[in-house]
Design a protein around this nucleic acid. Structure first.
Lengths: 194, 194
DNA sequence: ATAAAAAGTGATTAATCACTCACTTTATTG
DNA sequence: CAATAAAGTGAGTGATTAATCACTTTTTAT
C-alpha cells in the first residue's frame, strides 16, 4: 500500500478539503484525514510536519487552481466588462465546486492561530483585488465604466460582495445554488460601475 | 463578592464579547472568562448551563442592540435613501464598537457545532434583510431608486457587501477604519440602486 | 439571630487531539 | 539478491478544556 510521497500529500490535501467542506475545519482532525485515505493517524505526520502545514498547502493549492480558472479573464482580448462578468461567474462556479474554500477562509482557526496562514490569505486577497482593479481600469479607459471610478476601491467592493454572498451561502449550509446568483450579482455590479 | 445572578450573567456575556474581539472565539475558554471577571472557572457554570449557552445569549444581546441602533432608520419619516445611507453608517459604526460580533458570526464553531445557534443567526439575518428590503421598496415607490429593482435581492446584496467588508476587516485584523468605509460604500450602493 | 437560599470554589474527571517514537513492512537500486 | 531508503504503524504522551461535585462562604428573609 505504500505510495510515493507526492501522491500521499495530494491525497491528504484533497481529503482535508473534502472534510472541511462536509464537516467544517474543526472536525478535520489528523485522525479523520487518515481514516478517509485508509492509513494510520501517525502516517499523516510522515508527509506533513504539522496540521497547520496541511492547511497551508491546501490553501495554496486552492489559490493556484482559482487563478488558473480566472487567468484568461485577466488577459484575454475581449471587452473589460465582458471579462469582469465572466470572472464573477467563474469564481462563483469555482467556489461551488470547492466548498472547502469558504470553510477554510472563514474559520477563525485560520486567522487567529497561525500568523503565517493569515499572512498567506491576506496576500492572496490583495493579489486578487489588484488584478480586478486593473480590469476595472481597463473598463474605465475603454469607456465601458464610469470615469470617476476609484478602481481599487470598486475592486474591493466587488470582492466584498462575492465574499459576503459566499459567507451567507456557507452560513445557510450551501442550501441555495450559488452559481445561479451570478447573473443578478452581475446586474448589481454592472449598474454600480456604469 | 457574591453578585446577583443577572448581573453576573451580563458580566460573563460582556467578557465573552471582549475576549472574542481580542483573541477570537477559540480562545474564549470558560477559564479565560472566569479570570477576566475574577471568579473561579466553576463559577461560570452556576450562571450558564453550557459554554454554547453563553454564546447564544451573547449573540442575542448583540442582535437586540443592533436593531435598537437601527430602529429609527426603519421607521423615521425621512426619505428612504437618506435612511438607507444612515443605516449603512450606523451599522458599520456599531460593528466597529463590537468586534466580537464578526468574530462570533464568522466562527465555524457557531455554524457547525451548534445547530440552535446557527438557526438563531439565520433568523436574525433574514429579519435584517426583510427590513432593508422594505426600505428599498419605499425608495422605489418614492422614485428615489430604479423602478425595475428586486427589493429582496438588492437587500441581500447590500447585506453581502457589508458582511464581506466586515469579513475582510476581520481577516486584516481590524487594521483599517471601518467607519470611514461608510461613505464610499454608500456611493457604491447608491449608484447600484439609482 | 438564624435558617434557607444563592453564589462561589478547589479538586477532579473524561474526552479530545496533535504529535512522537521505536519498530515493521514495502519499494528501490546497485 | 542483498542493502538501503522510504513508507507505514501501534502504542503512547502531554496539553487542553468543558463540565461535575462535594463542600464553603455570602446574602437574604423572617
Amino acid at each position: 500500500m505504500g505510495k510515493p510521497h507526492q501522491q500521499r500529500k495530494q491525497e491528504i490535501i484533497q481529503s482535508t478539503l473534502a472534510l472541511a467542506a462536509e464537516l467544517g475545519v474543526k472536525k478535520v482532525t489528523t485522525q479523520a484525514i487518515a481514516d478517509r485515505i485508509g492509513v494510520a493517524q501517525a502516517t499523516i505526520f510522515r508527509h506533513f510536519k504539522t496540521r497547520d502545514a496541511i492547511f497551508a498547502e491546501a490553501i495554496a493549492w486552492l489559490a493556484d487552481q482559482l487563478f488558473l480558472v480566472l487567468s484568461n479573464c485577466f488577459q484575454s482580448q475581449q471587452d473589460a466588462d465582458q471579462r469582469l462578468q465572466q470572472l464573477v461567474h467563474r469564481q462563483l462556479q469555482f467556489i461551488s465546486e470547492h466548498k472547502g474554500l469558504p470553510r477554510l477562509l472563514f474559520s477563525d482557526r485560520l486567522h487567529l492561530e497561525s500568523p503565517a496562514l493569515k499572512q498567506a490569505v491576506q496576500t492572496i486577497m490583495q493579489h486578487y483585488t489588484r488584478e480586478v482593479a486593473k480590469l476595472i481600469e481597463e473598463g474605465v479607459d475603454s469607456g465601458h465604466f464610469r470615469q470617476d471610478l476609484d478602481a481599487m476601491q470598486s475592486a474591493g467592493f466587488i470582492a466584498a460582495l462575492i465574499q459576503g454572498l459566499v459567507m451567507r451561502w456557507s452560513i445557510f449550509n450551501f442550501d441555495f445554488d450559488l452559481e445561479q446568483e451570478a447573473k443578478p450579482l452581475w446586474d448589481f455590479i454592472d449598474s454600480a460601475l456604469r
